[in-house]
Simulated assay, not measured.
Amino acid sequence: MATIYYTATSLDGYLATTDHSLDWLFEVPGAAEAESGIGDFMAGIGALVMGSSTYDWLLEVEKPHEKPGAWQESFGERPSWVFTHRDLPAVPHADIRFTQAPVDQVHAEMTAAAGDRDIWLMGGGDLVGQFDDAGLLDRVMVSIAPVTLGAGAPLLPRDIRSDRLTLTGVSQVGQFAELSYDVKPKAAT
């Protein structure tokens, strides 16, 4: 069981534009091919985690609250945690748990819910950084798109040095470079 940050980023390290758009990602030739591999990844996932911006984006683009069963079609019956400090609408018939608690206080509950499967940290980067701060980030898997944005939401706004990252996989899917790194916890100080 691992806690995995799996995402796509621009070549210059941004998850989204300054106005939170991901349109640039879906415009890349071969994006659908790259996304088609998500099924294999999802088979090993037991719980989902996201911040409020990621959840807002899913609501806006996927519209699961308007399409019965849309959330389950994308994510199955997996429990999902949304870290937020504001009220957000729930998706009918989806196991979504809103929390303001620190990540280390919620991680045990997520791990229990995931069983022997992994936890997917969907984003954003700062939330993932909080998992790293707590020593709970095990792996980073990133698909790098051939796009530069110049500004936006950063991939992972933390100082994580090479002594903590071990490259475990490199592949090409269409125009995307896919990298996987195991993450060692910070040394105790």
Rank of each mutant, 00 (worst) to 15 (best):
M1N: 06
T3L: 07
Y6S: 12
T7I: 15
T7G: 06
T9A: 14
G13P: 03
G13K: 10
A16T: 08
T17N: 05
T18D: 13
D19V: 02
S21I: 02
L22Y: 01
D23W: 00
L25I: 04
F26V: 09
F26D: 03
F26I: 09
G30S: 08
A31H: 09
A31L: 00
A32I: 13
A34C: 10
E35I: 12
E35Q: 13
G37D: 05
G37C: 03
I38N: 08
G39N: 12
D40T: 14
D40G: 15
D40R: 15
D40P: 01
A43W: 07
A47H: 09
L48F: 06
L48I: 08
M50F: 00
G51D: 01
G51A: 00
S52G: 06
S53K: 11
Y55M: 01
D56C: 02
W57G: 07
L59W: 04
E60F: 00
H65I: 11
K67C: 02
K67E: 12
Q72E: 15
F75G: 00
E77I: 11
E77R: 12
S80P: 04
W81G: 05
V82K: 05
H85I: 09
H85G: 14
H93P: 04
A94L: 04
A94I: 04
I96R: 00
R97W: 01
F98W: 02
T99Y: 09
T99D: 07
A101K: 14
P102Y: 01
P102N: 10
V103T: 00
Q105S: 15
V106K: 07
A108D: 13
A112F: 08
A113P: 08
A114P: 07
A114K: 03
A114D: 06
A114Y: 03
D116Q: 13
D118L: 00
W120C: 01
G124T: 05
G125E: 01
G125Y: 02
G129M: 04
Q130C: 04
Q130A: 11
D132C: 06
D133G: 02
D133T: 12
A134I: 10
A134W: 05
G135K: 05
L137W: 02
V140R: 08
M141W: 13
M141S: 14
I144K: 10
A153N: 12
P154C: 05
L155Y: 15
L155D: 01
P157D: 13
R158H: 05
D159W: 11
D159V: 12
T166V: 10
T166L: 06
T168H: 02
V173C: 12
Q175M: 15
A177N: 10
A177L: 15
E178K: 12
S180E: 14
Y181R: 11
P185G: 10
P185L: 14
K186E: 13
K186D: 11
T189K: 12
